[in-house]
Simulated scan of single mutants.
Amino acid sequence: MTHRFPIKEVARQSGLSTATVDRVINNRANVSPQTKARVAAAIAELEGQEAQLTARGRRLFFDFVIEAPTRFSREIQKAAEQVLPRIGSAVCRPRFQAQEIMTEDDVTAALSRIAKRGSHGVCIKARDLPTIRAAVDHLIAAGIPVVTLVTDLTTTKRIAYVGLDNQSAGRTAAYLIAKTVGDSAGTVLTSRSQDQFLGEEEREGAFKATLTRQCPNLRVIDASGGSGVHFETSRIMQSVLAGLDQIRAVYSMGGGNMAILNALEHNGSLPDVYVAHDLDNENRQLIEDGRLSFVLHHDLRVDLQNVFQAFLHHHRLTPDPVFTTMSPIQVVTPENIPPQNRCL
């Protein structure tokens, strides 16, 4: 594996030992494919950040621990890479650990490794579970600041939540559906990726309260738990849709929209209106094809810039705190799809 970085630098970026990185670099035996992938990813990150290393300032390492479908975690990493050149007060070096499904043990083990090797800040998207909250507070007690992204861990001592105003998003989805289908009888299908994501829980609560007030004759059926992943979402949808009448609307809070739409089409119950979240590549194609009615979108570049600014302010490298960390909602339709992300 060719590269131009010291082994110690690759080890620090990947979170692995120098001995492990040396085995990978020199193609020695007894190295797992996952370890090779981590080293390759670290080298790619270093290459992507190399241009920024010419900037003057302190060098800071920030860790991202993300449970999300690959399509979304890639959007987060891309947004981080786009905003980094705009940060002039320090050289920020992000390290990413992302999985589509992370158990409690996966998350706590990742945070434990970060606590041992050290970090200037951790940005986390994870479920709101007691063991994860305890691991986050352990990081904070060790002097490592934590920012939550998109979904919050409100009872921890994290320094900021960055992302969408989830309650406002839920109310907006209910408004769009109410204005489209009216207060006639029928079924609205809701879908969250997991029960323990606080952000999606906030969206759902606000959505149901608003829809009940505006359209009391609509009943809500839940089909959650697929983690936004195609196979799991398809399996859950098949069990939920059996025996259901025509579905008037869908509010998808956690992704997996291709799987949901395919299951609805197979069941002969495509809705009048479909509201989804985030303009990732899959949703962009679906709304361009007219299969989604609305996408509630927010600019991840703004979110990631706020993440870095919160960390820099914590380290007293910028005088101004981040006053507003919640992103405004953009309602995207097939008629106003924004162009692909460009640098800010």
Rank of each mutant, 00 (worst) to 15 (best):
F5Y: 14
F5A: 07
K8A: 15
Q13I: 01
S17F: 05
S17T: 15
D22A: 08
D22L: 03
D22K: 04
R23F: 09
R23K: 14
R23P: 03
I25H: 00
N26D: 12
Q34A: 15
K36A: 12
R38G: 00
A44R: 14
A44C: 04
E47W: 01
E47D: 15
G48A: 15
A51T: 09
A55G: 06
R56K: 13
R58T: 14
F64W: 14
E67D: 07
E67Q: 14
E67W: 03
A68P: 04
A68M: 10
P69F: 02
E75G: 07
I76Q: 00
I76R: 00
I76S: 02
Q77L: 02
Q77K: 15
A79R: 02
A80Q: 05
Q82K: 08
L84G: 02
R86Y: 10
R86A: 11
R86E: 07
I87N: 03
G88L: 06
S89Q: 14
A90R: 08
A90M: 10
C92A: 14
C92E: 00
R93Q: 15
P94F: 09
R95V: 12
F96W: 09
I101R: 09
M102N: 03
V107M: 10
V107C: 07
T108A: 11
R113V: 04
A115G: 07
G118N: 03
S119A: 15
H120I: 07
H120P: 05
G121D: 05
V122S: 01
I124M: 07
A134D: 13
A135Y: 00
H138Y: 01
I140T: 09
A141W: 03
A141S: 13
T148R: 05
T148F: 05
L149N: 02
L149H: 10
T151M: 13
L153N: 06
L153Q: 08
T154A: 12
T156Y: 06
R158C: 06
A160S: 14
Y161A: 10
L164T: 13
D165E: 12
R171V: 07
Y175V: 05
I177K: 04
T180P: 01
V181N: 12
D183Y: 08
L189N: 04
T190G: 04
S191T: 09
R192C: 14
Q194A: 15
D195S: 12
Q196H: 12
G199S: 03
E201G: 07
L211R: 02
P216N: 11
P216S: 11
N217Y: 04
L218R: 04
I221Q: 13
D222Q: 12
A223E: 03
S227G: 04
V229N: 01
T233Q: 13
S239V: 00
L244E: 08
Q246A: 14
R248D: 05
V250S: 01
S252K: 03
M253W: 01
M253Y: 05
M258V: 08
M258I: 02
I260H: 02
I260Y: 04
L261D: 04
L261F: 11
H266I: 08
G268H: 12
P271V: 03
H277L: 08
D278C: 07
D278S: 09
N281H: 06
N283A: 08
I287P: 02
D289V: 01
L292E: 00
L296Q: 01
D303S: 15
L304S: 06
V307F: 10
V307I: 15
F308K: 00
F311V: 02
H315W: 15
P321V: 10
S327C: 06
Q330T: 12
V332S: 11
T333L: 06
T333K: 10
P338Y: 04
